[in-house]
């Protein structure tokens, strides 16, 4: 298992490098001069030159990239063009809200998806099977931020069961935290859960036809044991791969759904940065998001290795 983790970690290095080159080089693509953005049109040519010098904009591209990379590796992603906030601090400050929302929605998606998927596999063409199929089709067509709006207007505005807006940090008030992320997490998680249920169902149906399931029954093991011990573990193998991809999608969805509930997460940070063309901030957000995605992939790889002995390096 340690070997597996080591291999995966090594494989991430080139990917991270490429992402960093891509994100960095888009400064070069920017139509406007960052110096103008910072000091406005008023400044004299001299001031311009000073700022350029200070930002290292006169150095060749490669030098600037290596410089930036060197500092990025140490956790310094530069400072915002607009206020002297350190990018790393700003991103880390917003991260808990986005991550809470993402993982709560992953949890909902997994719990509902697994449950419904297994139930649908055991009773093909039952109501739960149809519901999963229907839900997956509809779920693909519903913008999750709109679903969020509807949930908010029903459960927050009309029924007042949940707060309509805002995010309460977990450390501050655990119950408040739970209430504040329930609706957005439902908005995100439910629509994906149906798709996941379909995955689980088809994997499960495939596994239940396997010889080893019949053999386990032939040993007189109970249906429950055969399904939950012998079949489910094997059915999860393809599902975990899908899940890894879905977590990335949910993370992206969280950036938008945050806006519905006025949650101050990475989404609003990114959108503000885009509006202001705050380059260091955008670079930092992308890089840190990629790190998060890679962390998720590593975690799913580990789970994959745990449930699928064949995937473990010999």
């Amino acid at each position: 298992m340690i070997k597996l983790v080591g291999q995966r970690l090594l494989a991430m290095v080139p990917l991270l490098l490429i992402v960093s080159i891509l994100t960095f080089s888009f400064t070069a693509l920017l139509p406007s001069d960052p110096v103008d953005l910072i000091i406005g049109d008023r400044g004299s040519n001299e001031q311009h030159e000073q700022v350029r010098e200070r930002l290292g904009l006169n150095d060749p591209f490669v030098t600037r990239y290596l410089d930036w990379l060197g500092r990025a590796v140490q956790g310094d992603l530069g400072t915002s063009f607009f206020n002297s906030v350190r990018v790393t601090d700003a991103v880390l400050l917003r991260m808990p809200a986005t991550l809470s929302l993402t993982f709560a929605s992953v949890l909902i998606s997994v719990v509902v998806g697994l449950g419904a998927g297994v139930a649908a596999a055991l009773r093909p063409r039952s109501w739960i099977d149809r519901l999963a199929t229907f839900g997956a089709t509809i779920g693909q067509a519903i913008p999750n931020f709109w679903f969020g709006l509807i949930l908010a207007s029903v459960f927050a505005v009309t029924l007042r069961w949940f707060p309509a807006t805002g995010y309460v940090p977990l450390g501050e008030n655990p119950l408040g935290w739970l209430l504040s992320i329930t609706l957005p997490a439902l908005a995100l998680g439910l629509s994906t859960s149906a798709a996941l249920a379909r995955q689980v169902r088809s994997a499960m149906v495939g596994v239940l036809q396997q010889d080893y399931i019949r053999a386990a029954r032939a040993q007189g093991l109970s249906s429950r044991r055969v399904i939950f011990r012998h079949a489910l573990k094997n059915a999860l193998v393809p599902v975990v791969t899908v899940l890894s991809f879905q977590i990335t999608v949910l993370l992206g969805g969280a950036l938008i759904v945050e806006q519905v509930y006025a949650i101050n997460g990475i989404g609003s940070l990114a959108i503000a940065a885009v509006r202001q063309q705050d380059i260091p901030m955008i670079q930092g957000i992308v890089l840190i998001l990629v790190l998060v995605v890679m962390g998720v992939q590593l975690a799913t790889d580990i789970v994959y290795g745990l449930i699928n002995p064949k995937a473990r390096p010999a």
Partner: peptide, 9 residues
């Protein structure tokens, strides 16, 4: 690399 970043980002 592009695919590993959430599409919306």
């Amino acid at each position: 690399a592009i695919v590993s970043i959430p599409g919306i980002m």
